[in-house]
Design a protein around this nucleic acid. Structure first.
Length: 567
RNA sequence: CGGGCUGUGGCGCAGCUUGGUAGCGCACCUGCUUUGGGAGCAGGGGGUCGCCGGUUCGAAUCCGGCCAGCCCGACCA
């Protein structure tokens, strides 16, 4: 490619609406342009990167026996109704009607379509099958953000495994696990596998691959000592026991005018420290009011509550709903004496006494509360949020909490879809066996963004060679001088013949502009051809990642770069 | 969905309080000079001021409605 003919609209200034580093650099570097919230046009440079990422993914999927498909992005409502997700997906699914008035959806994922195809699986001899595609997904995210990190339309590699029994699924799952590790390694991503929630759709052994980044939206709990790693939605920790005192007090009501929060009560005369309070949250779950109790200084992880109860429809209760059932407003709520309302309590409250909680009467609280004596807990369930520095459950060392980007997710689906669609094969005895499925996803643009998040400097992107849009840029200084441009052209042909993706910067621009652009868009190796070096038969070769620059004889320019790539 | 903010040329912004038909930097085009880290001079092109309505002799500016985008929260296989 000749730069003078390429569409690479670099910008000198950051676009103001870009926050994440990857967003800023990809827009500034001429890789992306936004069309609307959560929808981006991918420009030629981006397409080159994306296609290299896709190649890496294909190679690794094929290595474990994957077969590539391409399924439609528009789906009939029927298949989604069949799996029950037409309702469940709610507003997140783009829906439309065709000219006949039939309900259609844009695919958010493809379990339904692949399951339909899997109906043609007949015999146990056909299994296992690994099917994948690289396809556009549509999700009407309530809040797209971070440029291409979270969008409403994006490319995903999704794959599905079909097995006879859970041992087979385990093996398919493990093979994907290995393939994913290889993929991320080749992309230059340090992806940590973490235990995760499989979400509302069920499944087990859910593992997310996480890349540490401040632009990430997930919190990962990580133990540097033993390697324990889990998504915050799933993580547990060991916490120190709290001494509640020698005297086991009785419940006593006391007035707390103006006290609305845990913090208020911790400084209130006659109140209690935050860890000696019971935090009472009220949720509306599947239309039923539920009390959720936590230690005063602990936060709730809603996903844990959702996973633990199996509730799909879950939200904080409105004040009127709370008032109607408990007779008080938030700020004075508690579970003591409450009957007929499910009460979920976090294990951090087990065995605690002499605690303070709301009295279910505005402006009053109770002290001397013994959790197990005074509260009819329906379910004990870990629902609390881990904080940095708490002890690891497996080794006791301090845990670290960091932000991360979810670059891949693998989980076992079980038989949910196979049952809904009737996907079965005959076993050796001729009996129909429902197949068991796994589901595995990688978001391409998000992975590219994650690479940029972790591979850049103050000047711009620093692509790993494997996915750089071009591996070499030949920067011709004085492209208006025939001899210099000719020398650049010859090198350009030589690099191409050596099979190295090269762009020739033949623009008549000042050196500073060319250097800055090359660094911004992140080409790993820059070969500078200028009149000064040419007099001595030399070019300058710069290694973007290492920051090194060497003068090399023109004749060695190709072999030198090949050697650098090999290192 | 709640809270905050913003829409003026391709990008970044000023002008709006105090109404008079749009300006700056970068980018772009032409010419000359310049050329190893975002050049200089001269000349030039490009904008329904997000949209609709209202007030007014006159609206980028004031008023109302709508739309879009960004940030925080909620939400999110």
């Amino acid at each position: 490619m000749r730069w003078s003919q390429a569409f690479i609209p670099t910008l000198r200034d950051d676009p103001t609406d870009a926050e994440a580093i990857s967003h800023r650099l990809l827009v500034r570097g001429g890789y992306l342009r936004q069309l609307m919230a959560g929808a981006y046009s991918l420009l030629p440079l981006m397409i080159r990167v994306r296609s290299k990422v896709a190649t890496v993914i294909r190679e690794e999927m094929d290595r474990i026996g994957g077969q590539e498909f391409l399924l439609p992005a528009v789906h009939p409502a029927e298949i989604w109704q069949k799996s029950g997700r037409w309702e469940i997906m709610g507003d997140e699914m783009f829906r439309l009607r065709d000219r006949k008035g039939a309900d259609l959806a844009l695919g958010m994922t493809h379990e339904e379509v692949f399951s339909t195809l899997a109906l043609e699986l007949r015999s146990y001899r056909d299994l296992p099958q690994f099917w994948y595609q690289i396809q556009t997904k549509f999700r009407d995210e309530p809040r797209p953000k971070g440029g291409v990190l979270r969008t409403r339309e994006f490319t995903m590699k999704d794959s599905y495994s079909f097995d006879m029994e859970s041992a087979g699924l385990d093996s398919s799952f493990d093979r994907h696990y290995v393939a994913y590790q290889r993929i991320f390694a080749r992309l230059g991503l340090d992806a940590v596998p973490v235990e995760a929630s499989s979400g509302a759709m069920g499944g087990s052994d859910s593992i997310e691959f996480m890349v540490r980044s401040n632009s990430g939206e997930d919190d990962v709990v990580y133990c540097g000592a033993c390697g324990y790693a889990a998504n915050m939605e799933r993580a547990t920790s060991r916490i120190d026991a709290i001494e509640d005192g020698a005297v086991h007090a009785e419940v006593e009501k006391f007035a707390t005018p103006g006290v609305r929060t845990i913090l208020d009560l911790s400084t209130f005369e006659g109140g209690a420290a935050r860890e000696s309070q019971i935090k009472s949250l009220v949720y509306m779950m599947e239309g039923e009011l539920t009390l959720v109790l936590l230690r005063g200084d602990h936060a709730l992880v809603e996903q844990k509550l959702q996973d633990g109860t199996g509730a799909i429809d879950l939200r904080p209760a409105h004040p009127e709903e709370i008032q109607a059932v408990l007779g008080a407003n938030p700020g004075s709520l508690g579970a003591v004496g409450v009957k007929g309302v499910p009460i979920v309590a976090d294990p951090a409250l087990a065995g605690r006494y002499n605690m303070v909680t709301g009295a279910n009467e505005d402006e009053f609280h109770l002290r001397g509360v013994d959790v197990e004596r005074d509260i009819e807990v329906t379910t004990w369930m870990d629902v609390r949020e881990i904080t940095d520095g708490e002890a690891c459950v497996t080794c006791g060392e301090p845990l670290e909490v960091f932000k991360a980007i979810e670059v891949g997710h693998i989980f076992k689906l079980g038989t949910k879809y196979a049952e809904a669609f009737g996907v079965s094969v005959l076993d050796e005895e001729g009996a129909a066996i429902t197949v068991i499925m796994g589901s595995y996803g990688i978001g391409l643009e998000r992975n590219i963004a994650a690479v940029v998040e972790t591979h850049h400097d103050e000047k711009g992107i620093v692509w790993p060679v494997a996915i750089a849009p071009f591996v070499v840029v030949i920067t011709v200084l004085r492209a208006d001088v025939t001899e210099v441009l000719d020398a650049g052209e010859r090198l350009y042909r030589d690099y191409q013949q050596a099979g190295i993706d090269t762009i020739l910067d033949d623009r008549v621009e000042r050196p500073g502009v060319k250097f800055a652009d090359a660094e911004l868009i992140g080409i790993p190796y820059r070969v500078t051809v200028g009149p000064r070096g040419l007099e001595n038969g030399l070019v300058e070769i710069q290694d973007r990642a290492r920051g090194t620059t060497e003068e090399i004889a023109i004749g060695d320019a190709i072999s030198h770069v090949i050697q650098l790539i090999g290192q």
